[in-house]
Amino acid sequence: MDLKPTVQGGMIYATMACWVIAVISSIAKRIGPARILFFVGFLLASAAWVYRWIDVQHVPMQNLFEVFLTLGVLIWPIWLFSWRVLDIRSFVSDLVIGLIVLFPAGFVFHAEPQRLPPALQSWLFAPHVAVYMISYVFMARAMVQAIGVWMLCPPGMPDPRTLDSERATYQMARLGFPLLTLGLLLGSVWGQRAWGDYWGWDPKELWSLASWLVYIGYFHFRYMNGTRYPRVNSLWAVTGMVFIVITLLWVNLSRIFPGLHNYAT
């Protein structure tokens, strides 16, 4: 446990408090105040992110603390986009995702400012990480919808609610997948410029390839079978997110996977 009695830590805790109250308000059918609190939490998280940028003097995406803070900032804009553009009417699940991603930033990872090592001083640093973060949020939302399919889908023929969740899973995945691919491409270009290899067979690269392939499998399976097997479709989406979590966390934190990306802890 790493409590942060700092201005930045205070903003993270305040964001989490806003979102916890928003969840309670939403359950109590007080949707208006809940939405306002969701937005206030976003403003606080954004302020913490900007504060961090000024403090460390580079885009705050270097280590896991900064990455999870960035994920926390992305939750509200992606929720708004999904609501307005895609008509996906989720709310509490987005708040819960936001709380889950801010928890490691607030309580687990150290926040000591770090300077960028030479390899990270590249114009590709920010877009590579940012694109991955946005895709991760989409894929996390896809997973939530996929879990909904498993919870709603009775054995036998799927009902309309199940199919709605299945389609929402697909909508999220189809938005996140090109970004996931772009992240892989930018990483590859960067690897070529920094180390001389567009692909180094590093554990993090291989896990990110495995994540990418799971979604390839998902799209091909869904193309073959449509919505006939919503539970199987959803299983692909959940597996993809599990692989993403392994890529993001286990590979960096475990000593089982030594590699070029281990600085990002």
Partner: peptide
Amino acid sequence: LLLVVLLIVLSIYGAFRGA
């Protein structure tokens, strides 16, 4: 689909083996 699944398995195996 089979080849994709096989490559997933090979990638995980490779990740455990090291770069």
